[in-house]
């Protein structure tokens, strides 16, 4: 597989594997990994209308405020926190908040928490946010409202910094993918960015697993004819100085670039060698 040849920043996959191997020899840790602890407050028989999914990895600083805003999005809201690889006390904060908490000892990897959370969600509408960014409930409500009004995928109208000659790789990838999917109107908006909301229908069509590779989920949504639209602009670039710091240390750019390619490859497999685009009147047979 291509995975072998990638640039590994941070841990190498080999060192990761040896750790897992060590754990396995110690005991039945593996099963603990695969079926998480679920901490759920008593439900009073009422089904939630909105499920807010928040993956958390060591985000103690902002978590309390993030969860408080999330819980106020709708009167019938369940907040699902997917704590993974956290050692900073995030877990306790999540538990105290009254949210449904899923706990994984090890980091799941970028955006895998979205899939895990979505799997547990019971709401008609799923709202995805990050734990390191406090977005007011009123702002989040706009995404929920968009789905209530018929959107299947309600995106943050955020395209990143584009008034430049050379844009960031992720910004380029998002624009290129939307253009390739025939949705240039979406500009650089993507499921990759939070906040965004999905209808239950969208979740059924996309499936929970693909949410771990957001550009793939984005591509599936568009190709399967879901109603995908931009809602309001939330400047997640500016809100996130912590992320900038992390980006310098351990860049996510190669991962997200790869995600976009994986999305293109999925599309390729679902269509033909030209992604369903006609060849016009090019007489290829003339040159062999």
């Amino acid at each position: 597989m291509a995975n072998k040849f990638g640039k590994h920043r941070g841990r190498s996959p080999l060192s990761g594997r040896s750790k897992i191997a060590r754990r396995l020899s110690k005991g039945k840790q593996k099963f603990k990994e695969e079926s998480p602890n679920i901490d759920s407050p008593n439900e009073q028989g009422s089904f939630p209308f909105v499920s807010v999914i928040v993956p958390v990895m060591n985000e103690r600083k902002t978590l309390r405020r993030v969860l408080s805003e999330a819980s106020r999005v709708h009167p019938q809201t369940e907040v699902i926190v997917v704590v993974n690889g956290s050692t900073d006390g995030s877990l306790e904060i999540a538990r105290k908040s009254g949210a449904k908490v899923l706990m994984y000892e090890h980091p799941l990897g970028h955006d895998v928490g979205r899939s895990i959370g979505a799997r547990e969600a019971q709401g008609n509408i799923l709202l995805f946010i990050d734990a390191d960014m406090v977005i007011p409930a009123a702002t989040l409500r706009a995404f929920v409202d968009a789905v209530t009004q018929g959107a299947d995928v309600a995106l943050n109208d955020y395209s990143g910094p584009v008034k430049k000659f050379t844009v960031h790789g992720v910004v380029l990838a998002k624009h290129a993918l939307n253009q390739l999917l025939g949705r240039p109107d979406l500009e650089g908006s993507s499921i990759t960015a939070v906040p965004h909301a999905l209808s239950r229908k969208a979740l059924d069509i996309i499936g929970t697993s693909a949410l771990s590779v957001p550009p793939l989920a984005h591509t599936m949504a568009i190709c399967k004819g879901l109603n995908v639209r931009r809602v309001i602009h939330v400047n997640v670039g500016q809100l996130n100085p912590m992320r900038l710091k992390r980006e310098r240390k351990h860049s996510l750019t190669p991962l997200i670039m790869g995600d976009h390619l994986e999305a293109i490859q999925w599309w390729l497999r679902k269509t033909d060698s030209r992604g369903g685009y006609e060849d016009g009147d090019r007489q290829r047979w003339m040159v062999r």
């Binding site: 995975n3 072998k4 990638g6 590994h8 990761g16 799941l108 990897g109 590779v213 190669p254 994986e262």
Partner: peptide
């Protein structure tokens, strides 16, 4: 499928 951009971190 991912060219030189492997995903080595997701479980």
């Amino acid at each position: 499928s991912r060219l030189n951009f492997a995903d080595s971190t997701r479980n």
